[in-house]
Design a protein around this nucleic acid. Structure first.
Lengths: 383, 383
DNA sequence: TTGTATGCGTTATCAA
DNA sequence: TTGATAACGCATACAA
């Protein structure tokens, strides 16, 4: 361990770039099973049985076990996952493909995935498709070469067609999608119940007394858009509320997961210019809502005093924006967990040469009421 | 934390949980190099040489190459990364350890890492330590078993002592840290120049004419806190500005990366209660700034009209909050790239049995001026 | 210019 | 209760 060398000749203290040469250690000593065998005086086979606690281990004399385990510990033996794979065909790894890691929606999902995987002693191999099909394909290729035991694909739009995943199906590698799904019953999926979410949001505004509600729908491309809108319509019908089509806008198609902010801003500005009256605005998602709030504020309207705004997703910033955002929460971390469960079930089944069932799960969204919405009676509604 | 998946029995149509049985495909046909050899009529050795474009490939007849490549393509041959490792000792994988993936600061870094790794045909194996030492250790263990060729550790505080990384050093596995560094010159690191950043922020406020500036310092635990403050002090000295100690606060220690928001909120409220006068507030980071803005707004003070607020980091939400936040940007994605470069250099050196140099790089922060700051002349400064 | 043989570290099947 | 031995898929030294 070299002492903290401050070898900075003439640079103004800790600015810039420091370097130091490193002498290579005396060749990484990889201790193998054979070493343990030799050290303990038993054969590699026995060592393997003991260290893996294989079925046959019950027949091994306790004293033997102890000696082997001790030798392993003392030598710092660590099994070699690759060699192990070559025999067992198990890599204990799962491919996690993010269509765009930039989407704030990914992070909590990723935590959920990593966590469940970790519990099961699996390791996630990460890939980010950057919204590009060719990157997606090449990344799939890499995952296949590494023999991941399963694949989880996180996206909120589907640019992927089934036959890209054909290799996985052919090899019996379970695939689960989060946030979207594939037509047909070839892969499992986990999604929020968007319809219920849309309903929840509108119901909230409606119960607050709002009757002039503007809507910013999601781009058609996004798989969430349609069911959310359907939920809205269904609720509207159920209470005989007529949606004013003049107050309905739609975000443009875009691949940038953060473009909702700009979109919400622009559409809201346009709406304001048309001098339409509305006391509430329901945005496709949180970023859109934030953009809308921005436009409202810029126009001198206060949220929620002059206009209530509701979002969807409950991304991290929603709680921290001013005003904090009323929104519909997707249980993202849980969705990550569920996807891992699905995939693990597939792995186990495949292992035991059973058929398994693919599932399409919908998680329940949850209304989170914060500052950006309030009852219409307090609003300067009908001006 | 994996809730049992309840298969809601009698739910109307596409609500809940759909299932379908999957018949296992006819055993995943793994096509190996031998298959290609047989199909092409050459030996496995020749196939290996051709497909890897090994040095000896220059002596292989073009016709042979063509036949082999064609056979490989036709059979859909895909090299087996594990088997390959066993010979070559190269896994083409890098461990990426996040101390807490929940920190918004991680995501752009992760993108940078993934991207650079992808370019180099490496694959990231992800681990999230959840701020827990034991998880960190076990995750390291898993990475070691998988023989990652390098390790990148992302954190903004150092709970890790060197000897945890001893195994990596012993084995000549290069390690690079992002956002923190280890004492001694055993591992490379990439960090923003926090001192320059602190200076940048204060300089901005000072040039806007602010002379009563409140500060929220970071918790001592966070490695960024000290140099940022040092930068502030240095600039203050350089212009003979005296920092009013009554306006200096400090965030409490906390492991939650999102606790800055609450901390900023509370500290600002306390400050306001003391009825201290200040025209600007410089927060430790963006979340803290957002919390401060929240407190200010709640007290009826407008930002930036009554008080300018500056943050640090430029996390995604800074551009979207209202008002948008003036802040000091860390080039996070670039930092991810740099870390990969550092680590790749180490790998190559190690491969060629050379010594290599470890480096401590500092990236330049950048002032991003948005809405939350303005010249003091416009503020209701000296009331 | 191409083929043969060997071994990487494990595990599984047999035999002892 | 334990030990030989073979094989997983690939890459290389050496032979041809």
């Amino acid at each position: 361990m070299s002492p903290p060398l401050q070898s900075e000749p003439t640079l103004p203290d800790d600015a810039g770039h420091r370097e130091a040469s490193v002498k290579r250690a005396s060749k990484g000593i990889t201790v193998t099973m054979r070493d343990v065998a030799k050290a303990s005086g038993f054969s590699p086979a026995t060592v393997s049985i003991v260290l893996n606690n294989a079925p046959l281990a019950q027949y091994i004399a306790p004293a033997t076990k102890k000696r082997i385990e001790e030798a392993a510990r003392k030598l710092g033996y660590r099994p070699n996952a690759m060699a192990r794979f070559l025999r067992s065909k198990r890599t204990h790894s799962v491919g996690v493909m993010l269509i765009d890691i930039t989407d704030p929606f990914c992070t909590p999902i990723l935590r959920g995935i990593e966590n469940s995987l970790y519990q099961a002693s699996y390791v996630p191999i990460l890939a980010d498709a950057h919204n590009q099909k060719n990157r997606f394909e090449r990344a799939l290729e890499m995952l296949l070469e590494r023999h991941v035991e399963a694949l989880i694909v996180v996206a909120n739009w589907s640019f992927v067609d089934i036959h890209l995943l054909a290799d996985f199906n052919k090899r019996n590698i379970p695939v689960t999608t989060i946030g979207w799904d594939l037509p047909g019953d070839t892969t499992s999926s986990v999604m929020v119940d968007n319809e219920a979410g849309g309903r929840l949001a509108l119901e909230h505004l409606y119960k607050l007394g709002h009757r002039k509600i503007a809507f910013i729908r999601g781009p058609k491309m996004l798989i969430d858009s349609v069911p959310r809108w359907k939920g809205i319509q269904k609720f509207a019908n159920s209470v005989n509320y007529e949606i004013d089509q003049n107050l309905v806008m739609q975000l443009p198609e875009s691949l940038d997961p953060n473009s909702g902010f700009d979109g919400g801003f622009r559409l809201t500005e346009e709406l304001l210019q048309k001098r339409k009256k509305f006391t509430a605005l329901m945005a496709f998602d949180d970023l859109t809502a934030l953009g809308a709030i921005r436009a409202l504020t810029k126009a001198g309207l206060k949220v929620p005093e002059h206009c209530s705004v509701a979002g969807f997703d409950d991304v991290a910033l929603s709680a921290m924006s001013a005003p904090s955002l009323t929104t519909v929460r997707q249980p993202l971390e849980t969705m990550g967990n569920l996807a891992v469960n699905a995939v693990l079930e597939g792995i186990n089944a495949s292992q035991e040469k059973r058929d398994w069932t693919i599932s399409h799960q919908k998680t329940s969204p949850e209304l989170v009421i914060r500052e950006s919405t309030r009852a219409v009676s307090l609003s300067s509604s009908d001006d």
